[in-house]
Every structure is written in C-alpha cells, then in structure tokens.
Computed example of a mutant assay.
Amino acid sequence: MSSTEADCLFCKIVLGDIPSTPVYETGLTYAFRDINAQAEIHVLVVPRQHYEDAAVLASEDPALLAEVMLAGVEVAKQEGIDESGYRMVFNTGPDAGRTVFHAHLHVLGGEQLGLFGRPYRTG
C-alpha cells in the first residue's frame, strides 16, 4: 500500500489531477459528488491515502475508517439530509459491484430510497 497509486482514479481526484465537485474535506478525507448519481444526493467520501477497499482500510487503519464515516455524517449534515435520512454504503468485492479499487463511502439521500438488497422473504 502506498499513499497514492498512479493509476487510481480516486487518487488522481484527491490530487486534483482529475476535476471533481468538492463537498467536504479534512486533512484525511475528501468528499465529492458522484458523476453517476444514484440518488438526488450522492457524495463519495474517500480517504486521501490509498487503500484498496473498506476491508483493507479497516484492517490497516481503523482510525482512518472512523474518520471516513465521520466525514460521511458531516456530508449528510451539510447536504441537509441528516434529519430526513440517508444511506452510507461501502462496496467491497466483485459481488457488491465495486468498480474503483480505492476505499470509498457512498452517502445517498435527498429522496425516498428504495429497499436495500433483496425483498424480505418468509420461510
């Protein structure tokens, strides 16, 4: 693991090499609007340091994982969805639909979100 990866899309965004629309940032995290929004509000929160996914981040730097989560809460407050409700999601591994190999938290809200995962089944 290095602080940044030359071929990583989100590392390039954090460095400013690829433009983004910033929403919130700290010395350890950077939050920006998702260009393929899946809800009225869809913000990605990334650690500035490169970690492949949330599992690696949790294992190698749990304090930074907590900072990413706290940044997600601040994004929700700043975007005005903290009272109405929001969803925070990490996609880890191929079955989750992960497409960028840099740990990132999705913060979604601003509208009624659909059910998450499969519908409830009995029996």
Rank of each mutant, 00 (worst) to 15 (best):
C8Q: 03
D34G: 04
E79F: 10
D17N: 09
I13L: 01
D95K: 15
S59I: 00
G114V: 05
D61C: 03
L65K: 06
V43F: 06
L65M: 13
G27S: 10
M69P: 00
G27M: 08
A76Y: 12
L28Y: 03
I13F: 06
Y120K: 08
G72E: 06
L108T: 03
Q112Y: 07
D53N: 15
L115R: 13
S3P: 00
S20G: 03
T26R: 02
D95I: 07
P94D: 14
R118Y: 08
A96L: 07
E40M: 07
A58C: 09
A96R: 11
L9S: 10
E83V: 12
S3L: 15
P94E: 14
A55H: 14
T4Y: 08
A6D: 15
G123F: 10
T29R: 00
G97H: 10
A31S: 13
V68Q: 01
G93H: 10
D61G: 08
V100Y: 02
E5Q: 15
A66D: 09
V73R: 15
A54S: 11
D7A: 13
E67P: 04
D61R: 00
R121W: 07
K77G: 06
Q38D: 12
R33W: 04
S59G: 10
Q38L: 11
E60Q: 13
S59D: 15
A37W: 06
L113I: 02
C8D: 01
Q78S: 15
F10T: 00
A54K: 00
V23T: 10
V107G: 11
A76M: 11
A76T: 13
A76W: 12
R118H: 07
E79N: 11
I35C: 07
N91D: 11
V23P: 05
L9H: 09
M88R: 05
V75T: 13
V46M: 02
E52A: 15
D82P: 10
D17Y: 04
H50E: 09
R98T: 14
L113T: 01
T4G: 12
T122P: 04
I41R: 09
V45W: 01
H106M: 09
G93W: 11
A71T: 04
G85L: 04
G97I: 05
F10Q: 00
G27L: 10
D95T: 14
